[in-house]
Simulated assay, not measured.
Amino acid sequence: MPGSSLFSLTVLVTGATSGIGYETARLLAERGARVLVHGRTAEEARAATDRLVSTAGIPAERVCPFGADFSRLDEVEAMAERVVVEHPHLDILVNNAAIAAPERHTVTTDGNELAFQVNFLAHYLLTGLLERALTRVPGSRVGRVVNVSSSLHRTGSIQWSDPNRARRYARLAAYAQSQLALTVFAADPRVTAVSVHPGICETALLPLYGHNGATAADGASHVVRLCDPAVEIVNGAYYDRDERVEPAPAATEERTVKRLNKLADVLVGHSG
């Protein structure tokens, strides 16, 4: 049957309680995957899994809720520990959770600018903590990571000396920096990963783009395609919907990848 290559795979989707994340979880579960549904709180994740069962007709055993507030790195660590214990073999990680940067400069309890932490650093930490589960997939198959990025990464720059933008803050620049970092991170050689711009969709992030968008389900279809082991991917590549295209030049520079990893290691080290 179509999509049978996803049957019985275990997939963690972050930010899966609404928008593209929810639709990604739904499509994956409909195609037979076991989906770990992440939400900011356990209650939000449970509500999303209940909705998948009651309104989308997903079998209850195919969805499992996980809660973690990505503005708190200790919660990311706790969720990763639970995933590894309950699902030691993880086939796919979809790093989708994202927020629009707030109007005013906001710093998390971990000391990081809010959008940079939620959109990138939390995913950097989570991916590293799940690396063993992703590379311990039975047989010859290696797990893959799909980073849900944005075309706005092209407008971004990483402020190496001030990544938290304490000296000069603008919400669109902060958001673009977080998306550029996520796109660069796909080139990390430690895991098999790609990044994807799913198109401009009718989600909570639409105001950042300023015009009409496609449905969240349309965006999710491009994410799900890259999750499918039957679809060959180029490690570290960037996809604009279904088409592989060149990302911003910085995203392909080995020096930038290494520099970003060093920076991220320092910043996630703020977590006690």
Results as ranks from 00 to 15, higher is better:
4 S>H: 13
9 L>E: 15
14 T>M: 04
16 A>L: 05
22 Y>G: 07
24 T>F: 01
24 T>Q: 09
24 T>R: 06
24 T>Y: 03
25 A>L: 12
29 A>K: 05
30 E>K: 07
32 G>S: 11
33 A>W: 14
33 A>L: 09
35 V>C: 10
40 R>W: 13
40 R>T: 15
43 E>C: 05
44 E>P: 09
45 A>W: 09
47 A>H: 10
48 A>C: 12
49 T>Q: 13
49 T>C: 10
52 L>G: 06
53 V>K: 06
57 G>V: 06
59 P>D: 11
61 E>C: 05
64 C>A: 08
64 C>T: 12
73 L>K: 05
76 V>W: 01
76 V>F: 03
77 E>Q: 15
77 E>C: 06
78 A>M: 09
79 M>F: 08
79 M>C: 02
80 A>N: 00
85 V>W: 05
88 P>V: 08
90 L>M: 08
92 I>S: 08
98 A>Y: 09
99 I>Q: 12
100 A>I: 08
103 E>W: 04
103 E>Q: 10
108 T>D: 06
110 D>W: 04
112 N>E: 02
112 N>D: 08
112 N>A: 11
114 L>M: 14
114 L>W: 05
120 F>C: 01
123 H>G: 01
128 G>T: 00
128 G>M: 00
129 L>N: 00
138 P>K: 12
139 G>I: 03
139 G>M: 14
143 G>H: 01
148 V>K: 07
148 V>S: 02
149 S>P: 09
154 R>T: 15
159 Q>E: 14
159 Q>G: 12
165 R>P: 15
168 R>K: 10
169 Y>D: 05
169 Y>W: 03
175 Y>P: 11
182 L>P: 04
182 L>N: 06
184 V>W: 07
189 P>V: 01
189 P>R: 04
193 A>Q: 14
198 P>S: 05
205 L>I: 13
205 L>E: 06
210 G>C: 01
211 H>W: 09
212 N>F: 12
214 A>H: 13
221 S>E: 02
224 V>F: 03
227 C>M: 09
228 D>A: 13
236 G>I: 11
237 A>D: 08
237 A>Y: 02
244 R>H: 08
245 V>F: 04
249 P>I: 11
250 A>C: 14
250 A>I: 14
252 T>M: 13
254 E>W: 11
257 V>P: 00
262 K>P: 00
264 A>M: 06
265 D>E: 15
267 L>R: 08
268 V>G: 00
271 S>L: 06
